[in-house]
């Protein structure tokens, strides 16, 4: 595999609900180490698209091709379910907007981080716990909280725990749905710093759905703007945000309140 090969190729994805909503004819390539932002207002099909990409929803049309560690391209929606599940827990991560969707609230932080390790066969308690403690440190959570349940964590900590849980076994591709949604500004800033650092260190490919243009500018290398299920503009982040061409993008950019 060379640097010029995309890790994810999306071709003409469509998913409609009773002929309405969803996303229509979306296609793009994503390269290793690249962060792609998807912006647009609520109801523009961002989350539907993300669900199609991450295998949680089957699109009506189009294909999602993923390049595995062996360099082979595989059709995500055509592969067998066991293989897709294995991919999900070895190569991919999904960070949900609501930590309740992405964490197990009934078990401790350590168990949350260790789950992926145990799912792929780790059976040494001490080793699992050591890795979990290490990852708590990397997402800036006090190691003493390892046996506490996520319900005792603040919103920002829950979000960071979710990130640790997803990155623990070195995935190559991470999907994030509004990772900073519902957090206050200073906590957002810390989380964004953390994400930027981890993406760089781990050379992650990343698809981030957000409606926050500030988040998009900080994290994303490239941007896709969606409206009514279609991609209306795409390009380098600075280009799209500083020189928007489509009237809707211009409206979106100009409606950001100056701080």
């Amino acid at each position: 595999m060379t640097y010029s090969d995309p890790i994810l190729t999306v071709q003409a994805i469509s998913k409609r609900f009773m002929g309405r909503g969803g996303c229509v004819d979306v296609g793009f390539d994503l390269w290793p180490g690249e962060v792609l932002g998807i912006v647009g207002e609520s109801g523009s099909g961002k989350t539907t698209l993300l669900n199609c990409l991450s295998g949680r929803t089957t699109p009506d049309e189009g294909v999602v091709l993923y390049r595995g560690r062996d360099g082979e391209m595989a059709d995500l929606h055509a592969m067998s379910e066991p293989r897709r599940r294995l991919l999900m827990r070895t190569d991919w991560g999904i960070v949900h907007q609501n930590p309740r969707d992405g964490l197990r609230f009934g078990v401790s932080a350590g168990a949350n981080i260790g789950e992926r390790l145990m799912a792929v066969g780790a059976r040494h308690y001490g080793a699992i716990r050591g890795t979990a403690a290490d990852w708590l440190g990397r997402v800036e959570i006090d190691g003493l909280r390892i046996d506490d349940r996520p319900s005792t964590f603040s919103g920002g900590m829950q979000q960071r725990l979710q990130i640790a849980r997803n990155l623990v076994n070195g995935p190559r591709l991470v999907f994030m749905d509004e990772p900073t949604g519902g957090l206050d500004v200073s906590v957002q800033a810390r989380l964004l710093d953390l994400l930027r650092r981890l993406v760089r260190e781990m050379h992650l490919a990343c698809v981030i759905v957000t409606h926050d243009l500030g988040v998009a500018r900080l994290l994303a290398h490239r941007l896709m703007v969606m409206k009514e299920g279609r991609v209306i503009e795409s390009g380098l982040t600075d280009q799209v945000l500083d020189d928007p061409h489509h009237p809707y993008t211009q409206l979106l950019v100009s409606s950001v309140l100056p701080a």
């Binding site: 401790s108 789950e115 992926r116 145990m118 799912a119 390892i146």
Partner: peptide, 22 residues
């Protein structure tokens, strides 16, 4: 049922992990 079909049993060890942690 799907987890049984795919022998996807990682969560059983999460439960045991939690026992030891606590």
């Amino acid at each position: 049922r799907k987890m049984h079909a795919l022998a996807d049993y990682g969560v059983m060890h999460v439960k045991l992990y939690e026992d030891i942690a606590r």
